[in-house]
Design a protein around this nucleic acid. Structure first.
Length: 765
DNA sequence: GAGCACTGC
């Protein structure tokens, strides 16, 4: 496999060395402090040695470029472009401390590298030694008078830990809490822990956090870290966000669907509070160096403040020719680096998915066994989200002396997991991502090119502690053709949940809601149609509002169709069972399927399988898990992912609590072994996701007659039931139905006679 | 007939 086509790499645009500890400061506009930014011109070529055809032929000295043979050129989108003409700009230099680390979730520690907690005195000293501290007064003077500000700061600028404290110390929180949102729960927890330490307080008092299943706040809490989704949920019961004096939207450049909706929510809340003469709401958008103009424009030309962080220089190489086989190119690159670089320098490779990663890991291990003497040994570590937790943790352990760590990862290592010690990044430029087609309403999961932003994010993983090197397995010309930024999530997903939430907040017109990046009208319309089918909407005088059912649906942290399933379940006397099934469907699969132990898995799983489909099978697994005391040992023996199973238990408890609330008035009954009523309940709520067996033995969806197939992971894979409901359609090579339940066609017509009459009519014409 | 990026409430 090795040595067929060699990717030859050439030096190209390198990341600008934005850092340096302290570079001379120059006076900028309006007296702001501005740092000079070196651009190193020129470029040169680098040709790696041809790798050997077979491992045992590997030459002992494969050439690797000495650093002087290349020079970094243009870097990521320059900060010059970040400035709005006439905008007030503050620039600072900060070393990279005060970052994210440490902390602990109660049920399970977050997947971050443990950090040693310094002594309290040292913490305060360290805080004061941050250059951001020198600009504290200037920064506060600006922020104090602004309703809105956009704050640009690179990784390690310390903005997320320091700014909330500055605002607190300036008394901003006297009339309301300072909220800091994060896209990920681990980040919210570890940041709260860090800031609480810095303030020398007990976590949950002055500084706290709120994430799903875990609220560590009290009446004393003035600085609150929370996930963006959590603040959005709070906005349902209080759209003016009255508790808060300031909302900081951090990591805004990631453009998660929740942050995007929050942009509109805080903007509306701010305006409303102003109109009503209430306490003003301060909004601070924090981001890496992207999309500044967009943020600033959206918030009525809010000033942009710039914080410079410490970023070690990273050299970037592109291939000379396009690579048709990026896997092969990655393999070659890894072994070229491996033969040249000291073994203490680790390599991070970005691939697209589990299968690819496992295959590549195996190949690397095989090749590494046959390397010549004198070549370092290699520890190959796969990394992806569905990998069991214990195995994920291994990427943080140091390799034994003389061993090099090679981490082969999905985009999970782009943002979610930070690994120290990475010197080399190998970027294939590919990612597996969901695309949404509003015409068909289908989500397609496909391997595609990364965006420029994403490529720079990957590159940045090489320069966390020291200078680094990034090999891009595509040409510079190809890179120039990449999309500038990843399409915001809100333009790529089904919007039913978002629309339900906006309606629950009583947004006057969801069709014209002020999104920063508007989803297409078709896209919004599709979501409205879906909610309408579920009986959530009322049309009154051109105004869309929620029905009582719709309001109840919004109370569940679930996809609308699953919320509806729960709400229908009392009618079928099976709420106990439906709560379990919905919980199982709303987390990652509890089934662990290591490909190497397939037969073993099949043997063990047999006892749970129900001919009625996946939902009932999952229910059987959950019940046995509970009846046997639900321990880890059982999980291991039965190839069940215990982490996800624990999560199912938590979700179920939360959903049950919601059902028991007064306004829900839901009896929680069990069907007592009557599986048919459970299937009827599923048929009544998922009637728009059904497929029927065709005369030729294939399946087609009932509504649009789209050809579909049973996913190989389904217990019904080898069966041919006449009619099924499914919970998800997944487009990969084919259009697959996942999580199926056998139903009676008659139940469907019974559930939605009008819908099916209409569908039949359109089918005939 | 043969397969699943990543978050989050």
């Amino acid at each position: 496999m090795l040595g067929v086509a060699v990717p030859s790499l050439k030096a190209g645009g390198g990341r600008v060395a934005v850092g340096g500890r302290r570079r001379p400061l120059a006076r900028g506009r309006e007296g702001a402090v501005r740092a000079s930014c070196p651009h190193l011109p020129g470029r040169s070529c680098w040709r790696p040695r041809v790798p050997p055809r077979r491992p045992r032929d590997m030459p002992e000295e494969a050439g690797f470029p000495p650093a002087k043979r290349f020079r970094p050129g243009s870097g990521p989108p320059s900060r010059a472009g970040s400035f709005r003409p006439g905008g007030r700009v503050v620039m600072l230099l900060t070393p990279g401390s005060g970052g994210k680390g440490g902390g602990g979730r109660r049920q399970q520690p977050p997947l971050v590298q443990p950090s040693v907690s310094p002594y309290p005195e040292a913490v305060e000293l360290q805080r004061r030694s941050l250059p951001i501290f020198q600009a504290r007064g200037q920064l506060l003077a600006q922020l104090r008078n602004l309703d809105c500000a956009v704050l640009i700061g690179e990784t390690g600028s310390g903005k997320t830990t320091q700014i909330p404290q500055y605002l607190y110390e300036a008394g901003i929180s006297r009339q309301g809490i300072i909220a800091v949102t994060q896209p990920r729960r681990v980040a919210a927890i570890s940041l709260a822990t860090r800031v609480s330490d810095e303030k020398r307080t007990v976590l949950g008092k002055l500084v706290g956090y709120t994430v799903r299943f875990d609220d560590v706040t009290s009446e004393d809490t003035k600085i609150k870290f929370l996930t963006d989704g959590m603040l959005l949920r709070e906005a349902i019961s209080d759209s003016m966000l009255r508790k808060y004096s300031c909302v900081i939207l951090d990591e805004a450049h990631e453009r998660t669907i929740h942050t995007d909706v929050l942009f509109g929510v805080v903007k509306t809340a701010q305006k409303k509070r102003k109109e009503l003469g209430k306490l003003p709401l301060k909004v601070i958008v924090m981001s890496a160096t992207m999309d500044v103009d967009l943020f600033s424009q959206y918030f009525n030309g809010a000033p942009v403040l710039y914080l410079e962080g410490r970023q070690h220089p990273i050299q970037v190489f592109y291939t000379k020719q396009p690579q048709h086989d990026y896997l092969h190119a990655a393999l070659v690159s890894v072994f070229q680096i491996h033969q040249e670089a000291p073994s203490s320098q680790d390599i991070l490779v970005f691939l697209t998915g589990q299968e690819e990663i496992e295959a590549m890991s195996k190949t690397c291990r095989d090749i590494a066994k046959h390397l010549p003497d004198g070549c370092p040994s290699m520890v190959v570590l796969p990394l992806y989200a569905s990998l069991p937790y214990a195995q994920q943790l291994r990427v943080f352990q140091g390799a034994p002396k003389g061993y090099r760590k090679v981490i082969i990862s999905t985009n999970i290592a782009e943002t979610s997991i930070t690994i120290t010690g990475i010197k080399y990044v190998v970027d294939t430029g590919m990612v597996k991502a969901k695309k949404y087609n509003p015409d068909s309403g289908l989500e397609v999961l496909a391997v595609q090119r990364v965006s420029k932003t994403q490529a720079w994010q990957r590159t940045g993983r090489a320069g966390r502690e020291d200078s680094g090197i990034c090999y891009r397995l595509y040409t510079e010309e190809e890179f120039e053709k990449f999309e500038k930024m990843t399409m915001p999530e809100i333009q790529r997903c089904n919007l039913a949940s978002v629309m339900l939430q906006l309606l629950a907040m009583k947004v006057p017109n969801v069709l014209t809601f002020d999104f920063m990046s508007k989803p297409s009208p078709d896209h919004i319309q599709a979501a409205i149609a879906q909610l309408d089918l579920l009986g959530a909407l009322e049309h009154k005088e051109d105004q869309l509002t929620l029905t009582p059912i719709g309001r109840k649906m919004a109370a569940f942290p679930l996809e609308p169709k699953f919320a509806k399933t729960i709400l229908l379940s009392p009618k079928f006397h099976c709420t106990e069972e439906i709560l379990t099934i919905v919980s199982l469907l709303s987390v990652d699969s509890v089934l662990h399927n290591p490909p190497s132990r397939r037969e073993e898995v099949q043997g063990v799983r047999k006892k749970f399988i129900s001919s009625e489909g996946d939902h009932i099978t999952l229910l059987n697994i959950y019940r046995t898990f509970k009846n046997t005391g639900g321990n880890k040992e059982w999980c291991k023996e039965n190839f069940v992912n215990s982490k996800n199973m624990t999560l199912v238990t938590e979700v179920r408890a939360q959903l049950r609590d919601i059902c028991l609330k007064k306004q829900m008035s839901m009896p929680i009954l069990s069907s007592r072994g009557d599986m048919e009523s459970i299937r009827r309940c599923l048929a009544h709520s998922l009637f728009m996701s059904t497929a029927e067996l065709q005369p030729d033995g294939t399946y087609a969806t009932t509504d649009t007659h789209q050809p579909v197939a049973i996913h190989p992971s389904s217990v019904l894979f080898h069966c041919k039931p006449a009619c099924v409901v499914y919970t998800e359609l997944l487009h990969t090579n084919k259009c697959y139905m996942r999580d199926l339940c056998v139903v009676d066609a008659e139940w469907l017509y019974e559930a939605a006679p009008e819908y099916f009459r209409r569908k039949l009519r359109t089918a005939k014409s």
